[in-house]
Amino acid sequence: MSQQVNTRVEDTSPVVGSSLWQDAWQRLKKNKLAMLGVVILLIIILVSTFGPLLSSYSYDQINLDRNSEPPSWEHWFGTDQLGRDILVRTLVGGRISLMVGIIATAVSFVIGVTYGAISGYFGGYIDELMMRIVDIIYSLPYLFLVIVLLAFFTKSIFMLFFILGGVSWLTMARIVRGQVLSIKNQEFIEAARAVGVETPMIIFRHVIPNTLGPVIVYTTLTIPSAMLSEAFLSFLGLGVQPPLASWGTMVNDGVEAIAVYPWQLIFPGLLMAVTLFSLNFLGDGLRDALDPQMRKD
C-alpha cells in the first residue's frame, strides 16, 4: 500500500511529470489501432483541406439536369438533389464538422474537467453550489437559448462554437466530479496533502490524471454529438448556411432520401463514421497510454 502511494507521488513530481507525456507518447506509438486512427484522421484532414482544390467541381455548382444521379465515374459519390457533386460537398463539409467536433470537445474538456474536479474535490457547499449551477444551465430550454442569442447577436462561426461548447461541458463536469469524489479520499491524495502539496497542484497533478479514463471515453462520445448538434443548429439558422453543408446537415438531409437516393446519406455518413471510429481508437489508446496504473505494470 505504502509502496503505491510513493509511486504516485513520484509520478507527479515535476521531473517525472515531463516524462509522463513522453512515456505516454512512447506507449501510444506502440498501440497499432491508435496509430491507425491517427493516420486515418490525418488523411481525412488533408483530403478535406486540399481535396476540393483538385476537383473539377465546386461545392455550389448546380446542374439541375443531372440531379440525384448515383455514383459514376464523373461523380464518384453521385450527385445531390440540385445536381451538385457529393464528393466535393462531403470534403468541404468535413472541414466544418471536424472543426466543430474539435472545438466543442476542447471546450467541454477544459471547462468540464476543471469545473468537475474543483467541485468534487472541495465538496460540501462549494460542490453543492457548483452542481446546482450545472443543474440550472442544464434545465434551461436550450432551443430558446439559441433562438434568443440568434435574435440579439450577429451570426458567426464563433457564436456556433460558443453555443456548442457552452453546453457540452455540463455532463463532463458531472462525470469528473463523480470520479473525484471517489478518489479524493484515497491514500495517495491524502499523502500529497500531508507532505504539503498545494491544492491547485493536487487537483491538476494528482486528481485529474486519475479521472482521465472516463474523461477520454466521454470526450470521444462528445464529438459525434457535437457534430450532430451542429446540424440541429443549422436548422435554427446558426451553423453552416446553404449552399455550404456539413456532414451533420448532409446526413440530416440524406435520411429523408435514404430509401430513394441512399448515396446522399451513405457517403457523408460513412466519412463521418470513419472519423469517429478513428477518434475513438485514438481516444482508447490515449487512455491506456496515460493510465497511471498501466504505467506501473
Partner: peptide, 27 residues
C-alpha cells in the same frame, strides 16, 4: 433547395450575389 437554385441563377445571369438565411419559423 429553391433558394439555392435562385441564388445561383442570379449569380450566373445578373452577376449579383445573394445570401441565404434560413430561420426557425417564428423568428
Amino acid at each position: 433547395q429553391i433558394a439555392e437554385a435562385i441564388q445561383r441563377m442570379w449569380k450566373e445571369t445578373l452577376g449579383i450575389s445573394a445570401e441565404l438565411q434560413n430561420e426557425e419559423w417564428q423568428t
